[in-house]
Simulated assay, not measured.
Amino acid sequence: MILGHIGARKGSKGVPGKNFRDMCGKPLIDWSLDQLFAHPRVDAVVVSTDDERIYEHALAKGALPMGLRPAHLASDTAGKWQVWQHALEVSQTLLDSPVTAFLDLDCTSPLRLEDDITNALNLFEDQRPDMVMSCCDAHKNPYFNLVEPDETGALHVSKPLPGGVVARQQAPKVYEHAASTYVVAPDYLRRATSLYEGRVIPYVMPQERCLDIDTPLDFRIVEFLMKDRESTHD
């Protein structure tokens, strides 16, 4: 059984109320929530939130009645991993079959396609890692053009290699962690305390589908791209 999950905390300092703010005619969360309900391989959907409006909205669409998120998981310092663990634990008590894959979509990264969900699930089933995590090619590389100051304030390459790297193509491959799509093995989610304890492999997405909304400018950019995408489908 594949359990689809969305975490939508009530509070947001960067963009207040962003998870339920209108994005091209519907709440931001629905661009991800609708993908879960529409995907043929997702068997059940749950939304972890401390926002009563979002919770009732999710229930009306058919989400599992997991209740509101506990206060200790709704603070600025609450980790994604602990929220996932709680959602899995509660959801499993509401389901008749054991969860075989925990699929999380980040509602602040709504530009993924249905194919991204399918491809991430396929990668999980083919490779059997502990987790598949969405990534994109990094704009900057710590072996080449990311720098940091030493104790004197002088700059040096963040991760120097012997002999140095004089061209980006010589640098080891690095990815940006894109908060978009995750597929997690339930036994790993239960036993681990953080994302990277096990075998975590990348599902690589184009950068334009990995934009995450943290600021009002991010919201405007994603909204522009969403409108552009929707207009090409009309």
Rank of each mutant, 00 (worst) to 15 (best):
L113C: 05
I54N: 00
T100M: 06
P162T: 10
D214E: 01
A38M: 05
F20A: 03
D30Q: 07
G153T: 11
Q85V: 05
G198N: 14
S158I: 05
V42T: 05
L146E: 12
R128E: 09
S48T: 10
P27K: 01
D187V: 06
K26G: 00
M133F: 10
V47I: 12
M131H: 02
E208H: 13
C135F: 04
T232L: 11
L113Q: 09
H177A: 08
E230P: 00
P110L: 06
T232S: 11
L121T: 09
F102P: 02
D115T: 15
L217Y: 03
Q207R: 15
G62L: 06
L225F: 13
D187K: 04
R209A: 01
E89I: 06
L155E: 14
L225C: 09
E197A: 11
P98T: 03
N141V: 13
A154W: 08
D50P: 05
F20C: 00
V147A: 08
E52R: 04
S97L: 01
V200M: 04
L28H: 01
A78Y: 09
I54V: 13
N19G: 04
Y182F: 14
V174P: 02
R199T: 13
A78Q: 10
A185W: 03
A167Y: 04
D137N: 13
P216L: 07
Q92M: 08
F224S: 13
G163C: 14
D76E: 09
Y196F: 15
S75P: 08
K18N: 03
Y143C: 11
P142M: 09
C135Y: 04
L94S: 07
T232I: 04
R199P: 02
F219C: 02
K18L: 06
A192G: 11
A167P: 00
D130V: 10
A138G: 08
P40Y: 09
D115Y: 13
P186E: 03
I213T: 00
D137A: 13
R21M: 13
I2D: 03
R69K: 06
